[in-house]
């Protein structure tokens, strides 16, 4: 039985178990947790914390601009755990599709929306946006576009 504390800095967020794993440590953590019964990857997403660097995370965790968030579920024991990994722009991540094939679409979405590449992913292509799209919309430095309207003083499109 792997203790959550062995995997990284543990914490609670509104009563939910959270583990902060070190950069690159997510694959191993997911593998250990799989042996413990966390057989389903429920959710995998990322967060861009640009402009919010002094946020309070667990003690001993150095914050970076991005975070990868992986939600795991143990159906047998009805447990959930959330892995959070601090990542800076441009780092390559290891895919977890070899453990959780269900993460394939989710990792593609993170690639599409945030631009992170997952090494070992079987088919890393944009999933929601067209292939030729430029940029990654869920990054905070990606502005929300506007449709130009004819009224004067109206903000114009990008």
């Amino acid at each position: 039985m792997t203790e959550l504390a062995d995997l990284g800095v543990t914490g609670q967020s509104r009563g939910q178990d959270v583990v902060h794993v070190e950069l690159g440590g997510d694959h191993d953590a997911v593998r250990h947790l799989f042996d413990d019964g966390f057989t389903m990857c429920v959710d995998l997403t990322a967060v861009d914390y640009l402009g919010y660097p002094n946020r309070a995370v667990a003690e001993g965790v150095e914050t970076e601009r991005f975070e990868l968030v992986v939600g795991l579920l143990d159906l047998e024991h009805r447990r959930r755990v959330r892995l959070r990994m601090q990542i800076s722009d441009g780092v390559e991540l290891a895919t977890i599709t070899d453990i959780h094939p269900g993460a394939e679409a989710m990792e593609r979405e993170v690639f599409d929306m945030f631009g992170f590449e997952f090494t070992g992913h079987p088919y890393l292509k944009r999933i929601l946006l067209p292939e030729e799209w430029v940029g990654h919309p869920l990054r905070k430095d990606y502005d929300i576009g506007r449709i130009p309207v004819q009224f004067k003083d109206a903000p114009q499109g990008r």
């Binding site: 997403t45 269900g102 679409a105 989710m106």
Partner: peptide, 15 residues
């Protein structure tokens, strides 16, 4: 919200 992510069951089930 700084981030609002919805885990859609259809999105995952389609796989």
């Amino acid at each position: 919200p700084l981030r609002m992510h919805i885990r859609g069951p259809s999105f995952v089930n389609l796989q």
